[in-house]
Nucleic acid binder design. Structure first.
Lengths: 352, 352
DNA sequence: GTGAAAGCGCTAACAG
DNA sequence: CTGTTAGCGCTTTCAC
C-alpha cells in the first residue's frame, strides 16, 4: 500500500508530487528542473505542491540516471592537521559552486586504509579524487583501476599525475629578500631536517636571494634540526655561542621561529633591532602569539585547496592535467622583521 | 551498442559480470554479496570475473533499491579547527566500522550555509546528520523537515535534541583537585570570558573541588579575559601586583596557561616550585612546547566524536536518544604542576 | 504542452 | 541451486 501524499510518508517521491499536482511524473520532473517547455502555471503548481509536500529529490536516483554522482572524495594523510585543514576548506569552497559534495576520508598515511577508501569511493562513483598530504616529498601513487581523475595537493606522486604544491623555493626567496631589504646582510637559516624537500627548497630560495645581492650564508649559519620549537631555542644557543655577528635569521617554520625569538629575548638580544626574524607557515596561533609577532611566509594553503578543486573540476570536464604546479607563497609582515607592515605582492620574487 | 565486457568500458556493470560468467544478473548479485545459496564454484567464478573486469558495484543503485545511502553528513561550524578536527576523526572511526561514509560540510557558523547543506544532505538521502560545533553554548536547532536522526557534538541545541559535550565541570574539578593534592591551597583561576558556558562550568568544578577541601577562591584571584596567550601574561601581572601569596593557578585554556608560564618565568617565579600551573585542552602543540610542559585537562574530543558516531548509528537503527550527555575529561600530567607523571583515572572526580 | 514508456544498475522476491 | 521479474526514484526520449 502506497503512502498517501500529504501524510507522514517518510519518502515523498516525485510520483507523490505528480499525482497531487495532477500531472505525469515526467512533467513533474521537467517542472522541477526547468527543462522542456511547460505552461508557466503548470510549473508553478508543481513547484508549490513539491514545497507543500516537503519534497526532496533523491540524488541517488538522479545520479544513477545521469551517470554522475556530483561528489568527490578527499583522502587526507594527516587527519586534518594544520596543512590539510585549510586546504580542505578551499577544496570545498571551489566545489560547492558546482554543487558538488565532498566525501571525507582520513587515510592517516596508511596505504592499506587508502586502498580501502579508494575502493569505497569508486563504489560511490565519485567524479574524482583529491589526495591531500602533509608533506611535499614524493609518495606512492594511488592505484585506481578506473578512469576518474585524481590529483595531489600538498603531496607529490610521479610526474604522470597532477601535483599541486606551494612554491617553497620562492617562499624562501621572498623571506630572504625581505631580510636583505631591511639591511640585514649577515643571515642565518634555522630549519628542519634536510631530508624534507620543503627544507631544501626554502634554503635554495634563500640562497638565490642572497646571491642576487652578492651575499651568501656563512659556514655555521645553516642549522638543520627537528621541526620543533625547542630546536629553535637550541639552535640560537649554538649560533650565538660562536659569537657570529648575525643580524637576521630566516626560520624554516613558525614553531622554530618562535623558539628562536624566545631564546633571543631571554639572552637580551632585541628582535628585530639586533636580529630580525622571519618564519614560515603563517600559522597564526604561533605567529601572532610570538613576541614580537612574526613576519612569516604564508603558503596560501586555502588557495592551494581552491586550485585543487578547480583543477579537479576541469579534469572531470575532460581537460586533463599533469605534472607539478606550484602556487606562490606570500610574505606576511608583522613586527619581527623590523619592517613597516605593508601589503606585499604575492607574485613578487616569483621564479617564473 | 553495449561495451563489450573486458574492453575499456568505463562502466563495468553487474550485467557485464553476469554475462561473462555465464550466469543471470540476480545470480551474480548473490555471488558478489554472499546472499542466498549458490554453488561454491559459481560464487568463485563470478568473483573472479568481477575481479578481472575491475567491477565496482554502483553504490548509488544499491542504495536506491535498499532505501539507505550508508552515508552521513557532518556539518561543522569552525571549518575544522582545533575542536572539530579530532572529533571528525573519531566520528569517521566509529562510522567506518559500519562502512558508512561521511559527507563533510563546512557550515562556518553561518545559518544560511547550514540550511543549504541540510538541503543538499537530505537530497543525498544521508542516513543521519551530526552537527559538530566549536563551543558548547546553546545554538539554534537545525531545521530538518524529515525523519532522519540528528545529533550535536561539542554543540548544544534545545533539550529535545541529543547533545554530546565534554564534562567541563568535572574537568575543572580534576584540575583543581590535582593542585590541591600537590599541597597547593592558594589557588587562582585565569580563564576566558564569563559568557562561555565552558568557562562557567570549569570554574564551578574548581569551586566544588576547593570547597570539598574547605578552601575557596579569594577575591581577586578569579580573572576573566579573552581566550588568548597574551591575556595569560596580563593576568599574571594583575595577580602578582597585588602581592597575593598564590601557589597554584588553574587556567581555562592551554593558551592562557602558556602565557601564564612565560610571564611567571620572566618574573623569576619558578613553575612549578613556587607556583604550580594546570591548563585546559591538552592542545599538544601548546602544552608540550610550554616551559615547563603543561599539566592539563584533556576533553577527549576524539572519543567524543566516536561517541557521536556510535550514538548516531544507534539512532539510525531506531533507538532514539535525547538530552545532554557529557563525557568525562582526563588529566594529563606533565611538569607544570609539580606532580609525578602518572596514569590518571578518567572517571576520577566525576560528578555522577 | 503533456503523457507514456524505457531504462540507469542493482537487489529481492518468486519460480523453476 | 539458478533464472526471471519487478521495481527503487528519477530523467529522457518520443508520441500525441
Amino acid at each position: 500500500m502506497k503512502t498517501e501524499p500529504g501524510l507522514v510518508g517518510l519518502r515523498v517521491t516525485i510520483r507523490d508530487v505528480a499525482r497531487t499536482a495532477g500531472v505525469a511524473v515526467g512533467t513533474a520532473s521537467k517542472a522541477l528542473n526547468g527543462r522542456g517547455h511547460l505552461a508557466p502555471e503548470t510549473i508553478q503548481r508543481v513547484q508549490q505542491v513539491a514545497e507543500k509536500l516537503g519534497f526532496h529529490p533523491n540524488d541517488l536516483a538522479k545520479s544513477l540516471v545521469r551517470g554522475r554522482s556530483f561528489t568527490v572524495g578527499v583522502i587526507t594523510s594527516d587527519g586534518f592537521g594544520r596543512f590539510t585543514t585549510p586546504m580542505v576548506g578551499g577544496i570545498e569552497e571551489a566545489l560547492e559552486t558546482e554543487q558538488i559534495s565532498v566525501f571525507l576520508c582520513n587515510g592517516q598515511g596508511d596505504a592499506e586504509r587508502e586502498r580501502k577508501y579508494v575502493r569505497s569511493l569508486l563504489e560511490k562513483h565519485v567524479d574524482g579524487i583529491i589526495v591531500a598530504g602533509r608533506r611535499t616529498d614524493p609518495r606512492p601513487r594511488l592505484e585506481i583501476g578506473s578512469r576518474i581523475p585524481v590529483l595531489y595537493a600538498y603531496a607529490q606522486a610521479d610526474p604522470g599525475m597532477l601535483c599541486l604544491l606551494p612554491d617553497d623555493e620562492q617562499g624562501g626567496y621572498i623571506a630572504a629578500q625581505h631580510l636583505i631589504e631591511q639591511g640585514r646582510h649577515h643571515l642565518a637559516h634555522i630549519t628542519g631536517p634536510e631530508r624534507f624537500e620543503a627544507a631544501r627548497q626554502r634554503l635554495a630560495g634563500m640562497r638565490r636571494a642572497m646571491s642576487e645581492a652578492d651575499l651568501s650564508i656563512s659556514v655555521g649559519n645553516l642549522l638543520h634540526g627537528p621541526w620543533e620549537e625547542s630546536w629553535g631555542r637550541e639552535a640560537v644557543d649554538e649560533l650565538l655561542s660562536k659569537q657570529k655577528s648575525i643580524d637576521g635569521i630566516f626560520c624554516g617554520s613558525d614553531q622554530i621561529a618562535r623558539g628562536v625569538c624566545d631564546a633571543l629575548r631571554e639572552r637580551g638580544v632585541k628582535v628585530p633591532d639586533d636580529i630580525a626574524v622571519v618564519g614560515f607557515d603563517n600559522w597564526d596561533i604561533i605567529a601572532a602569539a610570538t613576541r614580537p609577532p612574526l613576519t612569516t611566509v604564508d603558503m596560501n594553503l586555502r588557495e592551494l585547496g581552491q586550485l585543487a578543486g578547480t583543477r579537479l573540476l576541469e579534469m572531470i570536464g575532460g581537460n586533463q592535467h599533469r605534472g607539478v604546479e606550484r602556487l606562490p607563497c606570500t610574505l606576511v609582515i608583522r613586527e619581527s622583521s623590523g619592517a613597516q607592515a605593508m601589503a606585499s605582492d604575492p607574485r613578487r620574487g616569483g621564479i617564473d
